[in-house]
Design a binder for these strands. Structure first.
Lengths: 229, 229
DNA sequence: CGTCGACTTGAGTTAACTCAAATCATGTGG
DNA sequence: CCACATGATTTGAGTTAACTCAAGTCGACG
């Protein structure tokens, strides 16, 4: 088995000299998980951070009575659990695999040392943190100021934009997970989707396919143009 | 008039050599505002970031129908508008003074150049960004998974903790602003406060004073211990 | 083919909202 | 120093988006 760790495909590490990337790889470890396994729990000491090698990871919070709010879903090449490396000592949320996954991890102190040497790594990390902040800002706005249909419309248009403005969208999560991401529950999402279909905004096919049949109306609902960076 | 800018009391700049702080001061500018004036609007190009010299600044989002969600309220020594310096080109929210205020600003490019030279500045900035992320994570949890009374209890306990566990709390914002920060409206906040007082959890005096008369019950309501980092 | 989780649909409840109106607080000009 | 204007706060009444609980259907996989 090849135990060599390659980091060239990780955007966070893109702009560093090859030798530094090798140094980073040398301090990295690898973990393998099955489906629905815990990577870390909220409150665990954060002495390392992670990068997804393969599979997908959800980052989430749970309420006392078990309701879940998904904060992120990360895929291949994306770092997670990185923020507590720089402030705080514990993970503020939990991480669990959505499917069979492999992740690399990096010990906190060695990574911080490397960042001190590598301004480009520092800037990339700041870009990652800033991007996350921007997403959270939008999430807070959605949760506080928008209703579920508006949030769903924004989500669909965003997914469409990410895929190059396709009209056919393949949710790559279950509707239950989508509900959790949008800050609602499956029953409500189901009803909202049914209403949107009946109004001709979308068409559902299969469990996970949605086609946007009236983009203009969706944009009016979402309230603002969806723009990628 | 003394136009010298001193940055020694800004935590973000604490760990740098004096000469670098002076270099930073030399690229900084100063802006003065009255009460309720706009520093920047959501969507404005973010070619600079700010540090509060004096006064207070609210960072907020508005919905289409005018409802406001306050994201932060920053006081003396705190940076704001810093995230878009590292990713994105526009401010994701708006900034307005709550009172007569003075702020310093730093042009993006010069600041980025300095960060490349100064690992400690980079690390401090990452700590700031991480801290903000942590706060937003909690805010999302509150908005999505907690009801208004729970959010208010958390807020009061947090304010108490910040002030060294005093029982007497002086809200230093109006109740309308507090409502906007908690993701609700003044009417609801007023009713919730009245109910809490009637139940003996708090006692209200004057417009802005609240004493926590049953800390245990508040903690039970908030659902988890409030801990400062 | 059967099982289990995901999804949908119905019925009822509720936290929090809107709208309206009255009251309180504060600061300013006369 | 008072009167008023303005904004903040409270309270009442009614509405509603979204929730809970329950039950049934669908679909994928062993």
């Amino acid at each position: 088995m090849d135990s060599t760790i390659s980091l060239v495909s990780v955007p966070l590490f893109r702009d560093m000299p090859d030798e530094d990337r090798k140094a980073l790889a040398s301090i990295a470890g690898t973990l393998e998980y099955g489906r629905a396994e815990t990577v870390f729990h909220e409150g665990d000491p954060a002495d390392r951070f992670f990068v997804v090698k393969s599979g997908r990871i959800k980052i989430f919070k749970l309420s006392a009575d078990g309701k879940e709010q998904i904060l992120h879903i990360f895929g291949s090449g994306e770092p997670f659990g990185e923020a507590p490396v720089f402030s705080g000592k514990r993970f503020p949320a939990s991480a669990e695999t959505l499917e069979k996954s492999v992740v690399h991890f990096f010990p906190r102190t060695a990574f911080v040392d490397l960042i001190k040497q590598q301004p480009s790594l520092a800037l990339n990390m700041m870009a990652v943190l800033s991007e996350r902040l921007h997403r959270f800002t939008d999430m807070i706005e959605q949760l506080s100021l928008r209703e579920v249909p508006e949030r769903l419309a924004s989500y669909l248009l965003y997914q469409s934009a990410v895929r190059g403005c396709t009209t056919e969208i393949d949710l790559d999560v279950t509707k239950t997970q989508l509900a959790s991401f949008l800050g609602t529950i499956p029953e409500t999402l189901s009803r909202v989707l049914a209403r949107m279909e009946q109004q001709g905004l979308v068409q559902l096919s299969g469990q996970r396919r949605i086609s946007l049949t009236d983009r203009e109306a969706l944009e009016a609902l979402a309230g603002s143009e969806i723009r990628l960076e």
